[in-house]
Measured scan of single mutants.
Amino acid sequence: TGIVNVSSSLNVRSSASTSSKVIGSLSGNTKVTIVGEEGAFYKIEYKGSHGYVAKEYI
C-alpha cells in the first residue's frame, strides 16, 4: 500500500512508460494498493483492473 504524494493529480498509465496511454488520474493523498514493480513504475490496482504510476510520486 502506498499514498499518492502530489499536490494536484497523478496520471495512471496503461503500461510502465511515460509514453503509454493515460487511463485515469489519482488525487494527492489517495491510498493505492501496489501489486508489482516495473522499472520506475509501480503496478497498482485501479478500477477493477491494473494501472501504472511513477514510483517517485508514491
Rank of each mutant, 00 (worst) to 15 (best):
A54Q: 14
S7Q: 13
V53H: 00
V4S: 05
S19P: 06
S49L: 10
I34F: 03
A16W: 05
S14N: 09
S19H: 12
G24Y: 04
N11E: 15
V12P: 00
V6C: 14
S20A: 15
V6I: 14
E38Q: 09
G2S: 06
A16Q: 03
E56G: 07
E56K: 15
S20L: 02
Y52S: 00
Y46Q: 01
Y42N: 01
N5W: 06
S49A: 14
V35T: 07
N29F: 15
K21Y: 09
E37T: 09
A40H: 10
V32Q: 01
K21H: 11
T1L: 13
V35W: 07
S17G: 08
S9M: 12
G51T: 01
S27H: 13
I44D: 00
S15F: 09
H50V: 15
K55E: 01
S20I: 02
T18P: 15
A54T: 07
G2P: 05
Y57L: 08
S27N: 13
S20R: 03
S9K: 12
V4M: 05
Y46P: 00
S20E: 03
V53Y: 00
N29P: 07
I34H: 00
K21D: 12
V53A: 04
S19W: 08
V6S: 12
S25V: 15
E56H: 12
S14W: 08
T30F: 07
T1N: 10
K31P: 10
L10A: 13
E37Q: 09
S15M: 12
S20V: 03
K21F: 09
S15P: 01
V22M: 06
S19M: 14
F41W: 12
T18R: 11
K47H: 10
K43D: 02
Y57G: 12
V22D: 04
G24I: 03
G48I: 04
G39F: 05
H50A: 07
T30M: 10
I58D: 02
Y42T: 02
G51R: 02
G48T: 07
S27M: 14
I58N: 02
K21M: 13
G36W: 04
I3M: 10
L26A: 02
V6W: 06
G48N: 09
K31N: 09
Y57T: 05
I3V: 13
H50I: 15
V6E: 06
Y57A: 10
N5Q: 09
V22E: 04
N5L: 09
V12F: 02
Y42L: 06
K55N: 02
T30E: 13
I34M: 04
E38S: 09
V35R: 05
N5Y: 05
S25K: 14
N11S: 13
L10G: 04
I34G: 00
V6N: 09
I44K: 00
K43F: 05
A54R: 13
S8C: 14
G24R: 02
I23T: 03
S14M: 15
G28V: 11
V6R: 08
E56M: 13
I23M: 08
V22H: 04
N5V: 12
N5H: 10
G36M: 05
S20Q: 02
G51N: 01
G28R: 14
A16N: 04
E45P: 05
L26E: 01
V6Q: 09
F41P: 00
L10W: 04
S27I: 11
I44S: 00
E37K: 06
A54S: 11
I23Q: 03
E37R: 06
G24N: 02
N11I: 15
S9F: 13
T18H: 15
S14V: 13
Y52W: 12
S25I: 15
T1M: 14
Y57H: 10
L26M: 06
S25H: 14
V35Y: 07
V32F: 05
T1H: 13
V53W: 01
E38F: 10
Y46W: 12
T18Q: 12
N11Y: 14
N11Q: 14
S17W: 05
A16E: 02
V53M: 03
G2N: 05
K55Q: 05
Y57M: 09
L10M: 07
K55R: 08
A40K: 10
V12H: 01
I3F: 12
S9P: 11
V35C: 08
K43M: 10
L10V: 15
G28K: 13
S9E: 11
G39L: 06
N29A: 10
I23E: 02
S15K: 10
I34C: 03
S9V: 11
V4E: 03
L26N: 01
K47L: 13
I23K: 04
G36R: 04
T30I: 08
S8P: 11
F41M: 04
R13A: 04
S25N: 11
Y57P: 03
E45W: 10
G51H: 02
S25D: 06
S7W: 07
G2E: 04
E37Y: 07
N5M: 12
K47R: 11
N11D: 15
V53S: 01
I58R: 02
S20N: 03
N29S: 10
A16M: 04
S9T: 12
S7V: 13
I58W: 04
I58V: 10
S17D: 12
E37H: 07
S25P: 05
E38R: 07
I44G: 00
G36I: 03
G36Y: 04
K47C: 12
L26F: 04
K31E: 11
K55L: 03
T1F: 11
Y42V: 04
S27R: 14
G2M: 08
E38K: 07
E45A: 10
I58S: 02
K55P: 00
K55A: 04
N29E: 08
G24C: 04
S49P: 01
I3P: 04
G24L: 04
S8L: 10
G28Q: 12
R13Y: 15
N5A: 09
I23R: 03
E37C: 09
Y46T: 02
L10I: 15
I44Q: 00
S7P: 11
G51C: 02
G2V: 09
Y42K: 01
V35N: 04
R13Q: 13
E56D: 08
A40Q: 12
V4N: 04
L26Q: 02
G2Y: 05
G51K: 01
I34D: 00
A40E: 14
T33H: 11
S25Q: 15
S15I: 06
A54F: 11
V4P: 04
I58G: 02
S15H: 14
V53E: 00
K43N: 03
S8E: 12
S9Q: 12
T33C: 11
T1V: 15
E45G: 04
G36H: 05
K43T: 04
S14Q: 14
G28L: 13
S9A: 12
G51D: 00
Y57C: 11
N11C: 14
G51A: 10
G28C: 11
E38M: 08
V4W: 03
L26W: 02
V12I: 08
T30K: 06
N5G: 06
F41C: 04
A40Y: 09
V12M: 03
S7R: 11
V32Y: 03
G24Q: 02
F41R: 01
G28P: 15
S19C: 12
G2K: 06
E38P: 01
T30V: 10
T33D: 06
V6L: 09
S27G: 11
Y42M: 03
N11F: 13
S19A: 11
S27V: 14
A40W: 08
Y46R: 00
K43A: 06
V53N: 00
I23P: 00
T1P: 09
Y42F: 10
T33N: 11
S15R: 12
G36D: 08
H50P: 05
Y46M: 03
S27W: 12
V4I: 08
E56A: 13
H50G: 04
I34Q: 01
Y57K: 07
S9C: 14
L10P: 09
E37V: 11
S25T: 15
F41V: 02
S20F: 07
V32M: 04
S9W: 13
A54H: 09
S17H: 10
K21I: 11
K21C: 10
S14A: 15
L26H: 01
S49R: 13
L10N: 03
V6A: 11
Y46F: 14
I23V: 07
K55S: 05
S25E: 11
N29Y: 14
A40R: 09
I23C: 05
S8N: 11
G48Q: 08
K55T: 04
G2C: 09
